[in-house]
Amino acid sequence: MRALKAVLGLLVVLAAAAGGLYVTDRLLASPDATGPSGGRSAAPLAVETIPVETLAFSETVRAVGTARARKAVDLVAEASGRITRIAFHPGAEVAKGDILLELDDRAEQADLKAAEATLTEAQAAFARQEQLNRTGNASDAAYQTAKGALLRAEAELDRAAALLDDRHIRAPFAGVVGLTDLVEGQMVDASTAIATLDDLSVIEVDFSISETLLSRLETGQQVKLTSAAWPDRIFEGEISRIDTRVDAATRSIALRAEIPNDDRALTGGMFLQVELVLDERRQLAIPEQVLSVDGDRNLVLLARDGVAEQAEIEIGQQSNGMVEVVSGLAADARIIVTNLHRVSPGMEVEATARDRHAQSPLPAGDEG
């Protein structure tokens, strides 16, 4: 029985060996798909490419600033008296010369009429003396006296008219009137604050930056401002004034920017974040997802004539997912953006252009 089992085991071993030899022979007989004599080569790797873009990059410095109206005054009366009419509504816009407040002017009206009557009498007396002087029937002294009386009467009329006009408080410039606590019938004098008046058509923003940037400053430079009151807006303006002195305590220099404010979104006293643009330029740019770093080298993969190439580039600023290319890349280069983990320099690739307008930001799976 043991002999039979031994024979059967030997037959199994021989059969397995024969099978292995057959399979090996078949494999050796098949053509080598990757060998130089196999008759065909591996298919090129399919990749997508995008062109190099040209974008605007800027060098900026940040600061904090305080807004102020281009023109702002505290309105006060030039004379004391009782309020007879408040002619403005707080928060309303007024034009230059509009009457804002009227004081009791009955005495000034009477003085004006008296001055007008005096002027009429002086004009008549001077006309008589002028006629007599012309015919030689009056002395020069009488003529000069009449002329002096006429001039005094004209001056008194002007003074009475000015005093009457002081009973009307007018807007010195166009702007927005602030709140007031005054009521009709209240007594006011030159120390009584009536209201504020602000010209908000243009807002000025004062801020300071380090003196080290003084040589790079000039009027007309662009500024961008943001406010917590308007988190979704960016306000743009330009430098209008540069201070003539550096603050010795802070070693900073004060600047003033002007920002158009047609919609009155900004007002005086607001706190603003300021971004001053020192330099603007247009440079080649690529998506930051296609950039790889090897030590201190920055590398990208390009597709050229069906072959993948590696380019070492010098980069600059980053903005909104794009990286500035300072050097090392031609403007007509095609950047590989897919299958980056499978592409190596010198590999054959089949490049397909990706529509830059239709594409969304590169998905994570394309980065490599």
Results as ranks from 00 to 15, higher is better:
134 R>Q: 10
75 L>K: 02
81 G>L: 04
251 R>N: 13
171 A>N: 11
320 N>Y: 02
84 T>E: 15
361 P>I: 08
154 E>K: 14
234 I>P: 03
156 E>C: 06
95 A>D: 10
133 N>T: 08
224 K>E: 05
77 A>H: 04
43 A>E: 14
123 Q>S: 11
143 Y>R: 13
199 D>M: 03
57 F>K: 04
323 V>R: 10
330 A>H: 11
20 G>K: 15
81 G>I: 04
275 E>C: 06
68 R>P: 03
110 A>P: 00
44 P>T: 08
244 T>S: 13
248 A>N: 11
119 L>E: 13
129 Q>D: 14
114 A>R: 11
70 R>F: 00
5 K>L: 14
166 D>W: 09
93 E>Y: 10
224 K>C: 05
269 G>A: 05
71 K>F: 15
111 D>K: 08
87 A>H: 05
258 E>T: 04
64 V>I: 15
337 V>W: 07
287 P>A: 04
252 S>W: 03
192 T>N: 11
27 L>H: 12
349 V>I: 01
152 R>K: 15
56 A>M: 09
97 G>C: 04
57 F>P: 07
77 A>Q: 12
184 E>K: 07
238 E>F: 15
137 N>G: 08
187 M>G: 09
133 N>H: 14
115 A>D: 09
332 D>K: 12
293 V>E: 14
343 V>K: 06
138 A>Y: 06
39 G>R: 01
232 D>K: 06
134 R>T: 09
210 S>Y: 04
253 I>D: 03
199 D>F: 03
112 L>M: 15
95 A>F: 10
306 G>I: 01
307 V>G: 09
272 L>V: 00
31 P>K: 09
313 I>Q: 07
275 E>M: 06
83 I>P: 03
137 N>Q: 14
224 K>F: 03
59 E>Y: 00
161 A>S: 12
33 A>P: 12
337 V>D: 08
120 T>N: 13
251 R>Y: 05
177 V>H: 00
40 R>M: 06
130 E>R: 12
297 R>C: 07
230 W>G: 00
51 P>W: 00
251 R>K: 12
332 D>W: 06
195 A>D: 01
333 A>I: 12
62 R>F: 11
98 D>W: 05
172 P>I: 04
80 S>L: 08
202 V>M: 02
259 I>E: 02
3 A>V: 13
32 D>V: 05
288 E>F: 11
212 T>G: 14
48 E>S: 07
200 L>F: 13
293 V>C: 00
353 A>K: 13
108 E>V: 00
334 R>M: 14
102 E>V: 10
247 D>A: 05
240 S>A: 12
279 D>L: 12
100 L>G: 03
132 L>Q: 11
242 I>D: 08
